[in-house]
Design a protein around this nucleic acid. Structure first.
Lengths: 198, 198
DNA sequence: TATTGTTATACTCTATAACTATA
DNA sequence: TATAGTTATAGAGTATAACAATA
């Protein structure tokens, strides 16, 4: 294992959870190992195929994804920029590297993204007082305003989805999502304990 | 209102048609009108906020989206290229412009994407015999093989999601998705009738 | 005249490699 | 020596504008 810091780093910030994040960003090498694609190639199940088919049908409806694209256009931002602003809005100031992990791009890439957001006046950089190698990014006031618009736009998209469900289905969905999240959290904690203990 | 067709268009198409599609792409102008963001800005509901919060929690778990990125890396393809190959595999040969709509990019952009896929030998272009202005793209045999790998990779991702649910929740989800799809289809047909009748 | 696709241009995203500063 | 971030370079994605061929 080449990057002993990534697991702790991802865990250290924000809230305790988010355990298994980021260690698979193609940061420094490590792209030769297979991702296990071959192993599970034939493990398709009737249910996965059914879900797959359903999702393909959904994706034919542009009206469902347009709202997001509409926000981009309205605000004259790229998807990556919106993504970065969203995380800054949700998590508050973070180190540049952490933001990169959240958005799912490398640290080299995030530099340019933050550069442009900074030149638009939406974010600002400051040195981390505790670790002077690190740079902390945060939303400016204009950035916060833009974040609020993004957030409202996302909310509007979600309402579109919820409107496709009856009240009972909506309740059911919340229950299901919460149980899934609980399982994910449990998995992450188990993996965490595992890596600490063994 | 510069684009009288955008509302119906977004709903009207989908599937065999391809004729009515894509008018909502920012193809020829029309980026000044608001996307209705302002109108629904304050319409946030407790449920949409709850869903929003849940989805943010989910998105903190990189392990859920990684499989997709892993496929990209394994196959040395960009997300857009994978997206295009997916649609070609699912829908068969289509006009270049239709593919652009499926992927969600403009016709100017799809040209370069198809160029690169063609130079990789994954797709081929032929003139449309019925409309000689148009160009039809289709998967080559190597392209079909790559599509099969993409498809299996996606299936693996879906299995990961399904594994987070108990059997009952899984059944419930299928029912909910099918009802949502039915409602979407009904909306689309209603809008279609509407645009034809009045 | 309108539509399909391409070309030319410019900017953003993205990764890799090399570098600086700090730990 | 390792880590955080930037710079330089190169390739891909993306939109806009101008253009060609066809309808």
């Amino acid at each position: 294992m080449r990057r002993p810091e990534d697991r702790p780093a991802a865990l250290a910030n924000r809230r305790g959870d988010a355990g298994a994040e980021g260690q698979d960003l193609p940061e420094d090498g490590g792209s030769e190992e297979s991702h296990g694609l071959e192993d599970e190639v034939d493990a398709s199940t009737p249910e996965s195929r059914r879900l797959h088919a359903l999702l393909i049908e959904f994706s034919r409806y542009r009206s469902l994804k347009n709202p997001l694209a509409g926000i981009c256009e309205d605000l004259q931002l790229t998807p990556t920029q919106m993504h970065a602003l969203s995380w800054l809005g949700n998590d508050g100031p973070v180190q540049v590297g952490v933001l990169a992990q959240r958005v799912g791009i490398t640290r080299k890439t995030i530099t340019g993204v933050v550069d442009r957001l900074e030149s638009m006046g939406l974010v600002e950089r400051t040195r981390d007082v505790e670790d002077r190698r690190a740079v902390v990014v945060r939303l400016t006031q204009p950035g916060s305003n833009v974040f609020a618009r993004i957030d409202r736009g996302l909310d509007a998209s979600l309402r579109r989805v919820l409107d496709l469900m009856g009240p009972e289905d909506r309740d059911a969905v919340f229950g299901i999502l919460e149980r899934m999240l609980a399982r994910l959290t449990a998995e992450a904690e188990a993996a965490d304990d595992d890596s600490q203990a063994g």
